[in-house]
């Protein structure tokens, strides 16, 4: 009997996600959250400008109307939608609701989240005087 000599294959720490389509999608999803974070920063900046006074606020308003900022905002919005969808899709896995011997259908839980999102969005739009 020969001596044992287990062989460990190496895994690249920097390009591991290129080895499978599933991992590429995962990494793109993670990287896209940078846009979401940038957009959050833009909104928070808007709040600070509002606190500073009417001139700063008007300057911020004209800044976000710049075509380049509009394009970036649209990209960020698309990623917001993707992240919302993937988050809601994961909810039934992370939050199972048991009723007796059955679990509440995952589609109902996801649907409930979309309904809550819709209701809250409508509330914000009414509050803003848009709807």
């Amino acid at each position: 009997m020969g001596a044992r000599r287990p062989y460990m294959r190496t895994m690249s720490k920097t390009s591991w996600f290129m080895t499978h389509a599933r991992f590429k999608t995962y990494m793109l999803h993670e990287i896209s959250s940078v846009f979401v974070a940038l957009y959050m920063w833009l909104l928070i900046d808007g709040l600070f400008r509002l606190a500073k006074g009417p001139e700063a606020w008007e300057a911020w308003l004209s800044f976000i109307k710049h075509p380049l900022v509009v394009v970036i905002s649209l990209i960020a919005f698309a990623f917001f939608v993707i992240h919302t969808m993937s988050w809601f899709k994961a909810v039934p896995q992370a939050m199972r609701i048991q009723q007796g011997e059955h679990f509440v259908d995952g589609k109902l839980i996801i649907g409930g989240h979309y309904a809550a999102l819709g209701a809250f969005s409508l509330f914000v739009l009414i509050l803003a005087g848009v709807a």
């Binding site: 599933r22 994961a90 896995q93």
Partner: peptide, 25 residues
């Protein structure tokens, strides 16, 4: 980090990723 690959490949539909998220909570 909830890649979720474990639940995709599980041949017995155990859904380990779901179990881990619940355990996080």
């Amino acid at each position: 980090s909830f890649v979720g690959a474990c639940s995709v490949v599980c041949p017995k539909d155990v859904d380990p990723a779901g179990a881990i998220q619940q355990a996080k909570f």
